[in-house]
Amino acid sequence: MHAPTTRWTTRIATVLRTTALSLLAAAAAASLGVGPAHAADGDVAWTVRTASNSYGASRSSYSYAVNPGGTIDDAMMVANRGPVPLNLAVYAADGFTTDAGQLDLFTKDRKSVAVGAWVQADQATVTIQPGKTAKVPFRISVPANATPGDHVGGILTSLTQPDQAEGINVDRRLGIRIKLRVGGELAPHLAVENLHVSYAGTANPFGKGDATVTYTIHNTGNTTLSSKQTVSVSGPFGWLRTGAGEVPAAPDLLPGESWPVTVPVHGVAPGVRLAATATLTPLLTDASGSVSPLPVVRSTTHGWAVPWTLVLLVVVLVAVIVGAVVLRRRNRVRRARREDARVEEAVKQALRAKETRTD
């Protein structure tokens, strides 16, 4: 069985220092066009595309549904568009999602355990004369104990050339994605992990501040999934709810992969105790390329949003009021004491005056 998907080819430039044989830099680019993927640099130029056969013509990438223990035979077409002969290495590699949210392929020195280990080209190298095209057959042998679900990788061509000016070897790679859906029970699932909310208020005691919601999307299922996201924060009992606005969709995550998310939420009222909620709508792409939403995944956490400026203002006002009450009571006591002393003195004077008249 097979199912073509939208074109996806990958191009990677990996720079290795010749003296130390250590990695200096790597750059990648993905081609989503209809035509074959193309690599060019000066006099070096070649293209790769899928072969036309029983799996289809003008396919954009390799996509198969296969049972554990099954095999698939297919081919890649490599064309030399430059003026000099090309000697290209051919190998397969597992796929992964980069920090930029793009699908990339392992470099040759990194061990593959799935598609990159299951794909074997008929030849490890191919030599192509200028203007000629070579067919590179390959076989995919899926182990009998392969995990059901999606496995993504690619088949690559590679050209390593020295750069005398920089004193490095430049490894240019060009490949085509391979997506396998191994038969068995599909269990698509995303989880929201490490959900946290923090709050930053303003100097205005009656103003609103900003909240920052962070979490990790973890693909805990066995299928490739993307997701739509919404984030909101609210005060106690759901009062003063504030949404984060449009949150970018998460990229396609392969089974087992995680994606960190940071979402700012502006104009949040300091409700003392905040509730932050992250809601995901997982999106599953089937073999035909259609996308289906799955049941939402929702998680909530709590954090403090204390309006410290307002609290300080209230404390100052309370202190002023308490001070005024205490001062008023002290003044009242002092007046009462003065009045008692005046009365006592008047009584004493009256008694002395009476004693004087009696004598």
Rank of each mutant, 00 (worst) to 15 (best):
R139Y: 07
D340H: 15
L159F: 00
F138A: 01
I140L: 00
P295V: 14
Q120A: 04
V311A: 07
V136T: 03
T5K: 14
W46M: 04
I178N: 00
S112R: 02
T358Q: 08
S299Y: 13
R330L: 09
T6L: 14
T14K: 06
S234E: 08
T6D: 13
T147E: 07
L317F: 03
T125A: 05
T14S: 14
I168L: 06
S61Y: 11
R332L: 08
G56H: 06
T125C: 06
T125E: 13
K354A: 14
L159W: 00
R139C: 04
D286L: 06
T214F: 07
Q349P: 00
Q102N: 13
V347Y: 12
L86H: 04
R7L: 11
A341M: 13
A336G: 10
P162F: 12
I217L: 07
S158F: 02
V66M: 07
P270F: 02
R181Y: 06
Q349H: 11
H189D: 06
R241F: 07
N87L: 13
L312K: 09
F96Q: 03
L32K: 14
T281R: 00
R172F: 13
T220G: 05
V182W: 01
T358E: 11
D43A: 11
A124C: 10
A278E: 00
H196P: 09
V233N: 02
G303H: 02
P248F: 05
A350D: 07
F237S: 10
H2I: 14
G154N: 02
P4T: 08
S54K: 15
E193V: 15
D340Y: 15
T285D: 06
I178F: 02
L186V: 06
T301F: 12
G221S: 12
T160K: 05
P205L: 09
F206A: 08
F138R: 00
T10K: 14
G183S: 03
D104Q: 13
Q229W: 03
Q123N: 09
Y91L: 12
G149V: 08
N53H: 07
G131C: 04
G116Q: 06
S158N: 01
Y64N: 10
A27R: 14
V231I: 05
V343D: 12
V247W: 09
Y55W: 13
V291G: 01
T214W: 11
R49G: 06
A200D: 07
G101Y: 09
R172A: 10
G303V: 02
T220S: 12
N169W: 11
G323I: 05
R328W: 09
S22Q: 15
R81I: 09
T220H: 05
I176D: 01
S234N: 09
P188D: 05
V213P: 02
G167F: 01
V322M: 03
R181P: 03
Y55C: 12
V113R: 14
V119W: 07
